[in-house]
Design a protein around this nucleic acid. Structure first.
Lengths: 219, 219
DNA sequence: ACCTGAACACCGTTCAAGT
DNA sequence: ACCTGAACACCGTTCAAGT
């Protein structure tokens, strides 16, 4: 019998389930039901649940709309990071998978290549390029998890973090107590502004990068 | 009958299981066996598996060795971030929980307060303080996941990422192909150097932070 | 009140049998 | 070769019964 499904079918249905029901909603059984077949049929296409999750990561990665390079490497770096951010925002429940599951597919490495290429156009290479790549990646992944995945999966409103902090002794957490209402009111621009900070760091860190070249707080 | 266990007992055993057997090794049943009791006994101390995982996050957070404040806010910010990094490095299997599970315990908010306080000592407040806090947090969390959790849970050696990339068409991934061997050879200093980039960004971004104040790539 | 065994409704996956 | 039902070894948790 010929193959009933394509890998793309499976990816599409799996991502749809994650988007609709969350990560816990995706099981071999629920995916099989979505494809109108039995659970064991999936094992003709996928080795394991782990492999299925990597397929979801590939599907999400393929949705990143890569920008065209320009002559401004900082703007290009920002554009790639923003493209990743937009994709994560559209599929927040999949973020933990993207952070956790390692893939080597073309789809998942294409955004990484675009990011590395933009940084290389800024004259970074060798260890400096590696550090810059890891730093921008870590920022994008970390803020996506904190800002997008946390909130949605837990059905938190914007003010709940503030309430949680307020419930504790404010004397022991004076700075967080002041910060919490700001965070509740100010949503959706952390990414852009935080990315500006990271990019300014890339521009203003002497090369080669070296942690002994620490900027003084008095400058 | 009096309580046989304390919450600290449960936290200690749970974290020990995660450290030894990984996240998948921690189940209500394995934890109960470790405590020499039945699975249902745990429900006298913990509402659910989710709550148990939050307890593990608290246990990890409590291990962060908070530095004393000095008169240098940049050094203090670095010290708090580094303390977090050291704790994550000692318990890499727990990192996905720390990234994913939200807690409001004193233990887990203490490092956050220390970080926010260090940034506030640098003159940051309001939205700028919030952005700076999120940015440093995102960098620490993101790089911990990428550098520590990924490698250990998958038993990857340092060169496997390079091999994966090399296995693909290098023509399509020219920058990553050059970058992969660098990453394989250069391990363990991404955090320090990346953190320097982020801190330099904080120092060199005009206040109030605004993404229109983007540094030019020509500076 | 605190404890806990039996049982239920799941889950991923092995195995063996179908076509 | 590709498909797939039955069954196995798990899992978190409800329920009810113990002390």
């Amino acid at each position: 019998m010929r193959a009933r499904f394509t890998l793309a079918d499976i990816q599409q249905h799996a991502l749809a389930i994650v988007d609709r029901d969350g990560l816990a909603g995706l099981t071999m059984r629920s995916l099989a039901a979505s494809l109108q077949t039995g659970p064991m049929t999936l094992y003709n296409y996928v080795d394991s649940r782990e492999a299925l999750e990597e397929l979801v990561v590939d599907a999400v990665s393929a949705l990143v709309e890569m920008p065209e390079p320009t002559d401004d490497w900082v703007a290009d770096t920002r554009a790639v990071a923003t493209a990743l951010w937009r994709t994560f925002r559209a599929h927040p429940a999949a973020i933990p998978l993207v952070l956790t599951r390692r893939t080597s597919s073309r789809a998942s490495l294409a955004p990484a290549e675009a990011l590395a290429a933009a940084l290389a156009r800024g004259g970074l290479d060798g260890v400096d390029l590696f550090v810059a790549f890891r730093t921008v990646s870590a920022f994008v992944m970390g803020i996506a998890q904190a800002e997008l995945a946390g909130r949605l999966s837990r059905e938190e409103d914007a003010g709940s973090a503030a309430q949680r902090v307020a419930a504790l002794a404010p004397d022991a957490l004076p700075t967080l107590s002041k910060l919490a209402p700001v965070g509740a009111a100010f949503t959706g621009q952390e990414f852009e502004r935080g990315l500006t900070v990271v990019l300014n760091g890339l521009v203003h860190t002497p090369r080669p990068f070296d942690s002994s070249d620490q900027a003084s707080g008095l400058s």
